[in-house]
């Protein structure tokens, strides 16, 4: 399941809903991304996430499907927010549920790595000097590349 939304989310509630009435699930892995208050040695007062409505949902669904093909998953959830957020706020949640922990851990990491390099989101950081678009990082590309099948 994927959701792209402006509003915040309740992690506990989402985990409960995802695992409810599915007792084949033995392990749940999750990643929660937060807005940091510092980047490139500058204090960040807020961050605005822009996205490409339509393509975002399509891409997140595609990478979720790929995770289900590659790992034995019983359920999964990706929530990504857009709009203006302040330091400490939740940006993204990825949850994977499986019978065994290895599939849950690995697929959760795969989803985050792919999401960061493929999903059409862009961060604009607000600092005391004004707004600055965040540059993509090579390390994120490297993280995604290691999941490519040889």
């Amino acid at each position: 399941m994927i959701r792209v939304q402006e509003n915040d989310f309740d992690v506990g509630l989402e985990l409960k809903k995802l695992t409810a009435n599915n007792h084949s699930i033995g392990g749940v892995a999750s990643f929660l991304g937060l807005v940091r208050d510092i980047a490139s040695e500058e204090n960040i007062t807020a961050m605005t996430l822009e996205h490409y409505p339509g393509m975002t949902e399509k891409l997140l669904s595609e990478i979720e499907q790929e995770a289900h093909q590659r790992w034995d998953l019983d359920a999964s959830l990706i929530i990504h927010r857009y709009g203006r957020m302040e330091p400490g706020e939740q940006i993204v949640l990825v949850v994977t549920c499986s019978k065994h922990r290895k599939d849950a851990f690995e697929s959760c990491e795969f989803l985050m790595d792919y999401l960061k390099t493929k999903a059409p989101f862009w961060k604009l950081e607000e600092t005391s000097k004004g707004g600055k678009w965040v540059d993509a990082r090579d390390s994120d590309d490297d993280a995604a590349t290691r999941w490519l099948k040889g």
Partner: peptide, 25 residues
């Protein structure tokens, strides 16, 4: 709404998007 390379053929009814490398997550 799908990533495309430079040699991709375009048609009159297409929706084309140009953007910098993505920075979500």
């Amino acid at each position: 709404q799908e990533y495309a390379e430079l040699d991709h053929t375009i048609n009159a009814g297409d929706e084309i998007a140009l953007f910098p490398p993505v920075t979500g997550g």
